[in-house]
Design a protein around this nucleic acid. Structure first.
Length: 431
RNA sequence: GGAGCGAUGGCCGAGUUGGUCGAAGGCGCUUGACUCGAAAUCAAGUGUGCCGCAAGGCACCGGGGGUUCGAAUCCCUCUCGCUCCGCCA
């Protein structure tokens, strides 16, 4: 959620930044008007409440002195004031609800270093690491590799769950598990505290993380609508410090969480229907940082590098791109996508997305920090939050199966993963 | 699932015949005095948000709603916690 104070202080500045994301001036004008209406409503109500308070005290004095006639007439008078206040409060609440509803649909302001552009074709490649894997045979898509090895079964998954699900068998299940452990260990080395959070959360948690109300249609909920299945561990991690004031010397706080993630993929009908790329349920290790406002720009680079480190250690070729304003996620002020090379698709595909939300999530979730050195009178400030996949596990399996496949159909296990996997190759099953 | 009890400031804990209570007291913390320094002692200060240029004002005693001129205090409801019973692992 953007800062509504800023709409009064610098509406032109806000408009200029939101324009880059395709928000028109009418929207900003509406919001600014609402903010001002709200202010007027508050001032009117507070004035009346003040009068009520003072006069109410006088009633007590009169009652004490036994002047019951004066008490009765004051009561009648206050009763009508009370009714006026009630009307004023209703109006104020109406304005505030409307402002809230409107402002919740406004995306975060992009950082100046974010490239402009309407769609992904304007994303900027920041760096490329490694070169596309070379083969002396035609590399197969991962689902063919996997089915031949007997480690992934998409058809049987439909028996219990329908499309966009997979069953892992044997070495496949083991590979997924090895990757999870490997990623969590690397995260721990980099200073992240491991967290195993609930994956069923209340709607307020979805709101706090910025998923709701915008993406209600993307989520799975329980039948009573009491709980939502998390679409990413970002949701529980962003709510971890709800309503807290964190001493600044504790920041940055870094967390890594392995969780399953659940997404309807409502807008993706027909896309990536084969294989592990786009599933309703997938595993992910998520990295999350809470920082002071001063730290977040640097932390964004660090967090992205921590995610890249997984690919470097697995010796998988990748590139890092900076999303343009039109491709930026709702809550993000700047996002780096890490894309891994997939030989069978002959292109790079997203395997991680690292975003700096600045104070956008913190404002909704009431997460603040306070200076710890000297200045005890310092006002609490909103923290900055950052998140990134480190990495999407299923897609990492895809990348390994495709990049490490051999002509005979077997798959080599990346060296860094051998101790976790307990072997250096997935061989074809004996006939 | 049934019955009962509870939720107050960083922590502990008063306040529940409604009235000046943002809230006693203690602890903790900050600053000052004393001290070579520390401890002890003494004094003062010590929540958050919103509106306001400011002075100041308004709100908040788990969340929401109600009664009343006036509610931390009364009523309803939700969430969370504890105790007992039942049920399940």
């Amino acid at each position: 959620m953007i800062d509504h104070r800023a709409l009064i202080d610098d509406p032109q500045g806000i408009l200029a930044q939101l324009r880059r994301r395709g928000i028109d001036s009418a929207t900003v004008d509406d919001l600014t008007r609402l903010v001002e209406t709200r202010r007027e409503a508050i001032q009117r109500v507070e004035k009346m409440r003040h009068d009520l308070k003072v006069t109410s005290g006088e009633v007590q004095q009169k009652a004490k002195s036994g002047d019951m006639e004066a008490v009765d007439s004051a009561r009648a008078q206050l009763k009508s004031l009370k009714a006026e206040i009630k009307d004023g409060e209703d109006l104020q609440q109406k304005v505030e609800v409307e402002l809230e509803n409107r402002i919740l649909t406004v995306p975060n302001l992009p950082q100046s270093s974010v490239p402009d552009g309407p769609d992904e074709s304007h994303n900027r490649v920041e760096r490329t690491v490694g070169a596309p894997t070379q083969f002396d045979f035609e590399p197969k898509p991962h689902w063919e590799v996997a089915e031949k090895l007997g480690i992934l079964d998409f058809e049987r998954a439909t028996k219990m769950s329908g499309s966009r699900f997979a069953v892992y068998f044997g070495a496949g299940a083991r590979l997924e598990r090895a990757l999870i452990n490997f990623m969590l260990d690397v995260a721990a080395e980099n200073g992240y505290t491991e967290v195993l959070p609930p994956i069923l959360v209340r709607r307020e948690a979805m709101l706090g993380a910025g998923q709701y109300p915008k993406f209600i249609g993307e989520s799975f909920e329980t039948l009573d609508n009491e709980y939502a299945l998390i679409p990413t561990a970002e949701v529980p991690l962003a709510n971890l410090h709800r309503d807290e004031i964190i001493p600044e010397d504790k920041l940055p706080l870094r967390y890594a969480a392995f969780t399953p993630c659940f997404r309807r993929e409502a807008g993706a009908a027909g896309k990536d229907t084969r294989g592990l790329i786009r599933q309703h349920q997938f595993n992910k290790v998520e990295l999350f940082s809470y920082t002071t406002p001063e730290q977040s720009i640097d932390e964004h680079e660090r967090l992205t590098d921590n995610a890249e480190e997984i690919l470097r250690r697995l010796e998988l070729p990748y590139q890092v791109i900076s999303l343009c304003t039109g491709d930026l996620g709702f809550t993000s002020s700047k996002t780096y996508d890490i894309e891994v090379w997939l030989p069978a698709q002959n292109r790079y595909r997203e395997i991680s997305s690292c975003s700096n939300c600045l104070d956008f999530q913190a404002r909704r979730a009431h997460i603040r920090c306070r200076s710890t050195d000297g200045d005890k009178k310092a006002k609490p400030r909103l923290v900055h939050t950052l998140n990134g996949s480190g990495l999407a596990v299923g897609r990492t399996v895809v990348a390994i199966l495709e990049n490490y496949q051999c002509a005979d159909g077997s798959v080599v296990i990346p060296k860094a993963l051998v101790p976790y996997f307990g072997g250096d190759r997935i061989a074809l099953p004996a006939q």
